[in-house]
Design a binder for these strands. Structure first.
Lengths: 258, 258
DNA sequence: CGCTATTTGTGCGTATGTATC
DNA sequence: GGATACATACGCACAAATAGC
């Protein structure tokens, strides 16, 4: 493969982008199968007539996209034929998903024991007939008159005493459970949907019945995968939106780790 | 600060790692406040007695961590005092935020150039008068008749050619931009709200006007913190809900990540 | 086991391009 | 236009990891 005229690079704003694009296409086309080694950096320099710096910059992009991994003394290996969404990652620390729980106070209006019927059992992912503590309340921003949400929280039976003597907790309920019972929430499953607000809820929220509302269901699980708490929040559509930020996990670190 | 003996670098396997660590510590200590500019690359070369290549490699790590952003002609700006976060992680598994993009195909119906007016400029976080490529389409599950979403995507002007010759892309648009232009999306900001579906959208979605719909806005940012793409999806409330799972990052993994 | 060749990683120097002020 | 600062690109050298002899 010692051509005197090197392989031309297609369009692209810079050489390393053009080279990266070329390699991505080659990988997608199956020219470099999964698990195979790419040409060495030196070979790519010769093939494309660019410096090693440019080659490394291009391969770095491929590594960032999760397409290849590099190993000293071995080479650059194809790990994926196309960039998958290994994306997703984080909400910023205490923020975002758990954010609004901080600025907003929860006022409890009712606590009752309930036995799960068919519908409720589906929501709580349990057997019908199981007992739960149901807590009803409203979330208000300090100073605001209208509540921004109606809340129903279902607490699994062993933790039913978590709210003993508390009417306006300053922590999210799951955090109270963590503190009081020494368990840790390791997983939160969240489901968001749009619903028409029913008449009764509309009255409390101060909106017209039938307007659009945001229903946020969160299920808090412990390390064993058991549900500890299920919270159902209903927000008026014009007064609330749900924001979060996702950051890409530093791909360079991920590449080294693999 | 023209010492003949430059500032010593602490421990670290390599110089750029040691330098990066030093800068991370300085930022965390408040020596470079939020929004401030780091010393220029040239200054850092002199201060630490290393080459510009080493400085750039170190700063690249800081940028990967989301601590700083770089801008030609300006400098390197501090964007966070420490990299998030303890919580975090989410799954790349099924039921994910990006999951539905895989099972669902996007059909583009329209591409036009638009100039941002006041309202659009607010959504796109730009100055009014700026040009964007607006792409309109529908998302359909294969086999299903009714679309599950109406989509508007705004693509920043430099990337307007990303869809040349494509009508039903097999990758999310942001992934196409990544491949074609060699940039990487490092952050996604997502906002979900409930809205009443307007008449025109209702007709396409096959629902009654005024019913509840879920509007999901995603903004895709590059490492410099600049918006590359903004996608607005409108889902019928009865046909879609938005699910995601967050896992608590395990302590061992957190140690590596930091 | 040591030795060597290969391959990526680290580091330096220099020059030019491009964006910003 | 000029000055500044980051981006791209070329070159070189040596270190570290790996594989094979």
């Amino acid at each position: 493969m010692n051509q005197s005229s090197p392989q031309p690079l297609g369009a692209g704003h810079t050489r390393y982008i053009a080279l990266a694009q070329s390699l991505i296409d080659d990988i997608a086309a199956g020219r470099y199968p999964l698990g195979a080694l790419l040409p060495t950096e030196h070979e790519l320099c010769a093939q494309f007539g660019v410096s090693r710096h440019t080659v490394r910059e291009a391969i770095r992009r491929l590594a960032d996209l999760g397409l290849v991994t590099r190993q000293p003394g071995v080479g650059t290996r194809v790990r994926a034929l196309r960039s998958a969404s290994r994306y997703v990652h984080s909400s910023t620390g205490s923020g975002d998903l758990f954010q609004y729980v901080r600025d907003v106070k929860l006022f409890l209006t009712q606590q009752i024991e309930v036995i799960a019927d068919e519908d409720l059992a589906e929501l709580l992912e349990c057997q019908p007939g199981q007992a739960w503590l149901k807590v009803v309340g409203e979330r208000r921003v300090t100073g605001e008159e209208q509540p921004i949400a109606l809340t129903q929280v279902f607490i699994v039976w062993p933790y039913r005493d978590v709210l003993k003597g508390v009417s306006a907790p300053d922590l999210p309920l799951y955090a109270l459970i963590e503190q009081r019972y020494g368990v840790v929430v390791t997983e939160v499953r969240q489901q968001i949907s749009a619903v028409a607000i029913d008449e009764e809820s509309a009255r409390v929220l101060g909106v017209e019945p039938g307007t659009a509302g945001l229903r946020v269901i969160r299920k808090y699980l412990n390390a064993a995968g058991n549900i500890m708490e299920v919270a159902v929040n209903l927000h008026p559509g014009d007064r609330f939106s749900h924001s979060m930020t996702l950051r890409l996990e530093s791909a360079s670190a991920a590449g080294r780790g693999a």
